[in-house]
């Protein structure tokens, strides 16, 4: 377990403001290689903002973030290098509507990783196989269901062969019958040993897959525990309140 103990993400006292609004108020956390971390908390508590600071879609204003040994500063080269190692899956999929599924997946490998086109397409097909929709390769995103689109988005992120995957509420925009197909893909990914940070309200998924759960409230990590402890014996009042709301509605 020595290798697994080595942290791939280190956050030290991270702060962020949107104008006067203090969104992140001192986040300190370390994520180990291969760890699966689920982030939950009430809406507006800064979960999205936090995981977006990790690949610098948002800039933090105080504190330190180190990803895979590189500190996030305003150095563009560093930022691009880090983004290549971090895959991100969005709530709204954000597939490129003017490109086919296959082109969506190969775009990054070809232009950013400088992979040969044939190689990239082979990789894309194997990823589509993995997420269960190889037959959709030549369609456009608008012709797919939400669940299929999100699986393409996962394949697109994986095609960059990242070390870390970030998920921002990947199932929140989906119809209930499509949630499972996306969670199944994520489960399989978790078992393959990927480092994952997942913002989600799917508590079943969290309990089953997570090594650790971070509970966010008002820009702080209020509670941090393995799932069994988190769900069965939460320590903080705010956690208890949140769990009671989310589990009995």
């Amino acid at each position: 377990m020595t290798q697994a103990a080595d942290p791939i993400i280190i956050c030290e006292d991270v702060h962020k403001w949107f104008g006067d609004f203090h969104v992140l108020r001192g986040i300190s956390v370390e994520i180990r290689r291969g760890e699966k971390v689920v982030i939950c908390g009430p809406s507006g508590s800064g979960k999205s903002t936090f995981i977006r600071t990790l690949n610098r879609l948002e800039e933090h204003q105080k504190g330190r973030i180190v990803v895979d040994g590189i500190e996030l500063t305003s150095d563009l080269q560093d930022i691009e290098a880090i983004r290549r190692e971090i895959g991100m899956v969005f709530q709204q999929f954000n597939l490129f509507p003017h490109l086919t599924v296959l082109q969506n997946i190969t775009l990054g490998p070809i232009w950013v990783r400088k992979m040969k086109k044939s190689e990239a397409e082979e990789l894309a097909m194997s990823l589509l196989e993995r997420v269960g929709i190889p037959e959709q390769a030549h369609k456009y995103p608008a012709q797919l269901s939400g669940g299929q689109q999100q699986r393409v988005a996962i394949a697109r992120a994986l095609a960059m062969q990242p070390k870390i995957m970030l998920f921002d509420e990947p199932t929140s925009a989906l119809d209930p019958e499509m949630i499972k197909e996306v969670l199944d893909v994520m489960r399989e990914l978790a078992h393959s040993g990927m480092t994952m940070l997942v913002v989600t309200h799917e508590m079943g998924f969290a309990r089953e897959v997570a090594d650790r759960i971070l509970f966010f409230d008002q820009g702080q990590i209020v509670e941090e525990a393995p799932p069994a402890e988190f769900f069965d014996a939460p320590k903080q009042e705010r956690t208890k309140l949140f769990l009671s709301q989310i589990l009995h509605h």
């Binding site: 879609l57 691009e80 983004r83 971090i86 950013v112 697109r156 992120a157 960059m160």
Partner: peptide, 10 residues
Amino acid sequence: QYEAALALGM
């Protein structure tokens, strides 16, 4: 769309 492109490291 911008975010998805940036997140791929472009």
